[in-house]
Nucleic acid binder design. Structure first.
Lengths: 225, 225
DNA sequence: GCCGGGCCTGACGCCGTCTTGACGACGCCA
DNA sequence: TGGCGTCGTCAAGACGGCGTCAGGCCCGGC
């Protein structure tokens, strides 16, 4: 059955979408925040994502890039705004379509069918990411280092998960802080230094010269597979 | 080069599309009727079709099915009507996207990029800008020179990103300064000279005679792909 | 109540980056 | 031809970010 993840913080809209989609035979998951959307997507591997941009916790474009880093799932953006630059940003970040509210349900369903039709349903990336020295299982939330399991604290996992889901991509300090600690934490770069050091001590063969958890001074961090 | 087939019977709209697309580096073909569109598509194998539904000879949906029968090329429909059933019919016939007039050119270009990204680069395309001597990955924030990765400082990256996102266009010194250093920096052109020299040293084969990072004396700088 | 893990905070030294200044080359114009 | 402004280059110092370590706080388990 085709599984659709609906991300919207307004309960009545989420409810209307859920009912309409379920009536058409789709299997529907609902998330009300960006963070839970990323978690649900990792755990349930939906076939399509319907994403409202006005989320309370994360910026919608960050949700798109967070999904796109590891998952080619089609994304249809719903938004109340008619702001053209926002449309362009969302589409260039990896969204497949952009529908402005209010929209007709018929049209939305047609766009959904179109998006599903061209998603060739390639097997998709495995939920386990490998580096030379360690492996990360994103669905089981487990990390192994040289065969043995490594225990990570929730904060350590939060950071590592974001980096690993965007392999090779630079993640800004600000994004790590807002996604792990919350939207109000934008300046506490010291936290990142401490936790990156801990992660490197647990995962890297030579923590003083990391090969996978790379610092880009002044900009952010990068996971190098 | 990416080839786009524009199908529109209104000459001024077809002309505007042709000019805008050609300015972005696309190879543009134009058809004014449905029949000539099908012929041109068969002969030239375009990478994308921009299709107006109000054609004089054939119904737009028939053009879509006529193309889809043998060709998986992405189709973006342009239409003046807001008729919902027409949208649904076009999308279900095989169109990939549906844009109602009047539309912003920025948005159309973004939808066009999204459609091309899906068709060519299934595992989530990466907008990589290429020059003869180096490549710039805008989403991963990485730069390679002759295969090897080049490390850029935040300021260097800020300047290069603006130039590369506007290939071929002259960027005023004032704009570079205000976007990289802040709104109060408008006279420190010396900074630009220092950092452009650094960028050229890192990226150009012959830094004394740059081929891609060009100075326009008294005005600004330009990235030449 | 005791203990331990997880999180936050502060201090310190190091190193890369930014800023600033000086100088020569070049083109333009009087 | 001389003056002027812009540009490119180099070097040196100031500055701030980074990694590291250690200590204190909070909270849940025993």
């Amino acid at each position: 059955m085709t599984r659709v993840l609906v991300v919207d913080d307004e309960p009545q809209i989420a409810r209307a979408l859920r009912i309409n989609l379920a009536a058409r035979g789709y299997d529907v998951l609902v998330a009300h925040t960006g963070r839970s959307a990323l978690d649900l997507a990792a755990d349930n591997r939906p076939d399509l994502v319907l994403l409202d941009l006005g989320l309370p916790d994360l910026d919608g474009v960050d949700v798109i890039t967070g999904l796109r880093g590891w998952n080619p799932v089609p994304i249809i953006v719903l938004s109340a705004g008619t702001d053209s630059t926002r449309k362009v940003a969302a589409l260039d970040a990896g969204a497949d379509d952009y529908v402005t509210k209010p929209f007709g349900m018929d049209e939305l369903l047609a766009r959904l069918r179109a998006a599903l039709r061209r998603s060739t349903h390639l097997p998709g990336g495995e939920p386990v990411v490998e580096a030379e020295a360690f492996t990360v299982d994103l669905t089981a939330k487990r990390v192994h280092r040289d065969g043995a399991e490594v225990h990570l604290t929730p904060t350590e996992w939060g950071i590592l998960e974001i980096l690993v889901r965007n392999p090779g991509h630079l993640i800004a300090q600000r994004r790590l802080l807002t996604e792990v600690w919350g939207p109000t934490y934008t300046a506490e770069t010291h936290y990142l230094r401490v936790y990156l050091a801990q992660l490197r001590r647990k995962l890297e063969r030579d923590p003083a010269h990391p090969r996978h958890l790379i610092t880009e001074p002044g900009m952010g961090y990068r996971f190098q597979p």
